[in-house]
Amino acid sequence: MQSEFIMILPVLLGAMLGAAALVWWERRLLAFWQDRLGPNRLGPFGSLQIIADVVKLLTKDDWVPPFADRVVFTLAPLAIVAGMLMGFAVVPYGPGLHIIDLNVGLLFFLAMTSLAVYGVLLSGLASNNKYALLGGLRSAAQMVTYEVFMGLSLMGIVIQTGSFNLNDIVQAQEDMWFVVPQIVGFVIFLIAGIAETHRLPFDLPEAEHELTAGFHTEYSGMKFGLIMVGEYLAVILTSAIIVTLFFGGWLGPDFLPPIVWFSLKTAFFICFFILLRAALPRPRYDQLMSLGWKILLPLTLLNILITGAVLLAMEG
């Protein structure tokens, strides 16, 4: 186990700035796909919109509804952001560029993202609002369903690499990206990842058109801002993990440094997440559950079985 504490500050800064930039980038990109302009007035290409938004959120009245559970209500957004930020600790950004080289890195990532889901659930319950409650319940149901095979979908990779260490997994893709042998695992992880980040088409806990704003109906000001930051962090983290696990992480031809390769690949998946949001409708919550339990879970188990069998056969 090897720790690079010097990396904490740049990673933290990078993640937070990335999340802030995403607020602007997502709006511009959605606008581009929807034949609109998006924020384009403040600063170059409207990029200073981020600052305006943050100033607005920070100067808003920090209101906690009198009927809410004050402590949990305040802590829940923190749990969302903290969980996601912790996840960044195990991501390898380049050769030797990581905060901690954990031998159970993959499990740590899964654990931290699950922690963030508790934040969503608790914020829904603590609000003491019926829409928020329904949002919280949906998020709990979604978590139970998708956590199961989110982890399992990655087991194929673990079998192939023989390690939970994310650095080892990247190294193991020197010859071939895992997306090729583990295409099923990739698709399932992608779906579970979207569900985990609560993004359209799986934004059921929020589901603006049904539950007004779902679990964060009662949130305003910077608490709401934190929830949004948490969502964007989740998008970045999930994209980074997808890249690390399936697309060779920082590996790439020599003409660009590894960190640039890593960033480019991650940016690609971030844009993909935004494109999904622009393109797809939202399934109903029981449909999402039955997709998870009836199709994706058996597929995942089958994937593990086949991966194991093929590996055994090749070794034997």
Binding site: W33, Q34, R36, L200, P201, R277, P281
Partner: peptide
């Protein structure tokens, strides 16, 4: 209609 079942973009095209 598309928006209410969660599809975000059509409403913009149709309003244009």
């Amino acid at each position: 209609f598309a928006q209410d079942v969660g599809q975000m973009s059509p409403v913009f095209y149709m309003f244009i």
